[in-house]
């Protein structure tokens, strides 16, 4: 069956089985490998992407549910890789092995999109579905606060 949706702003269509998980459609069919496979059961968040701006676990989301909607992956977070979160992540040297960070960033982007000044409790609520085995949680928390600050600074300037 043909499924048409927007991927990082561009129209794509795939002729695949409707139950093919979004994660594997993105990785194996569309060749974008920034979105990672971690557990396959929605427990780790490595495959987090945005569907119409909301975070979803790509491993549990059938491609059919993307029909007519907008999918955003880490590659589409910012055309130049300069999203406030990405800058904050680099500034605070958040990544270690880095494997989970695409999913962390997509969860964080969804959080900031809905809540520009999240509290620590908001961060707990939005980010506890994303596992980081390297244990970078403290830096992720600090970088989300820092990204919020960057956005405020730049909005204040413009």
């Amino acid at each position: 069956m043909t499924i048409a949706f927007k991927l990082n702003g561009e129209a794509v269509s795939l002729d695949v089985e409707p139950e093919l998980p979004l994660l594997w459609a993105i990785r194996d069919e569309l060749g974008l490998t920034g979105t990672k496979f971690g557990c396959g059961i929605g427990q780790c968040g490595a495959c987090t992407v945005q569907l119409d701006g909301r975070p979803v676990r790509g491993c549990l989301t059938p491609i059919s549910s993307a029909e007519g909607r907008a999918v955003r992956t880490i590659e589409g977070l910012d055309p130049n890789g300069r999203h406030a979160l990405q800058r904050a992540w680099v500034e605070l040297s958040v990544p270690q092995c880095g494997y989970c960070q695409s999913g962390q960033l997509m969860s964080a982007a969804s959080l900031l999109g809905a809540n520009p000044e999240p509290s620590d409790l908001d961060i707990d609520a939005a980010m506890s579905g994303n596992i980081c085995r390297c244990g970078t949680y403290g830096r992720i928390r600090a970088a989300i606060h820092r990204a919020a600050e960057i956005v405020r600074e730049e909005e204040g300037v413009s």
Binding site: L32, T33, G34, T35, K36, T73, I74, E75, L77, G81, L85, Q86, W89, V90, E91, S93, V94, P95, G98, Y99, Q101, S102, L105
Partner: peptide, 15 residues
């Protein structure tokens, strides 16, 4: 800063 942070926040680092 870490030298490998930039590709790792863009989904560009290859595993």
């Amino acid at each position: 800063p870490r030298v490998d942070a930039a590709p790792k926040v863009r989904g560009a680092a290859k595993y």
